[in-house]
Design a protein around this nucleic acid. Structure first.
Ligand SMILES: [Zn+2]
Length: 150
DNA sequence: CGTTTTTGACCTGCGC
DNA sequence: GCGCAGGTCAAAAACG
């Protein structure tokens, strides 16, 4: 859990739909529900955090590794909306959000058996801001898969 | 040829 | 019960 300010302008603020009162300061420095996560992006000049396993819903852990839901929201400053972690993402939808005149991109892990979802929303007011939300856990490895269909 | 991407429509969930 | 928002899937087309 390397929760520290990197070389980039990491004014990362996790988006908590159920906890708008929580800010990056409190969340990143203090685990709210005890569900704080530190994540690093190898190969990228970015690393940040967090969070949330249960967004308020007990969705029964499908007998996984103890974490049924894994959701993290990154707000990165840069034009890098698609930072490839080594996974292959297949775009499965576009949607325009109401409060934001920007289309939200829906990506899904192209891996067979990988039900990880990636949500990328480009900020319109600050187009250099990108809200990337990852949901789910990969059943393969980090950047281990490179075979699109095999 | 296979794969991926794009737009639309449809569906579900929640709120009121 | 209806409306709204958001999310997902589908078909087709384009590209590699
Ligand atoms: Zn995956």
């Amino acid at each position: 859990m390397a929760i520290s300010t990197h070389q980039l302008d990491f004014e990362d603020f996790l988006l908590l739909p159920h906890h708008p009162e929580i800010t990056a300061s409190s969340a990143s420095l203090s685990p709210l529900n005890g569900a704080s996560w530190g994540w690093e992006v190898p190969g990228n000049s970015a690393s940040y955090m967090l969070q949330i396993t249960n967004e308020g819903h007990e969705k029964t852990m499908e007998g996984e590794e103890g974490v049924g839901k894994f959701k993290i929201a990154f707000r990165t400053k840069s034009g890098i909306e698609v930072m490839d972690d080594g996974y292959k993402w297949r775009k499965y939808g576009k949607k325009k959000i109401k409060h934001n005149p920007n289309p939200r991109h829906y990506f899904r892990c192209a891996r067979q058996g990988c039900k990880v979802k990636k949500r990328v929303e480009r900020d319109g007011e600050d187009r250099h801001f990108v809200i990337t939300t990852y949901e789910g856990k990969h059943n393969h490895g980090l950047r281990q898969i490179n075979i699109p269909n095999a």
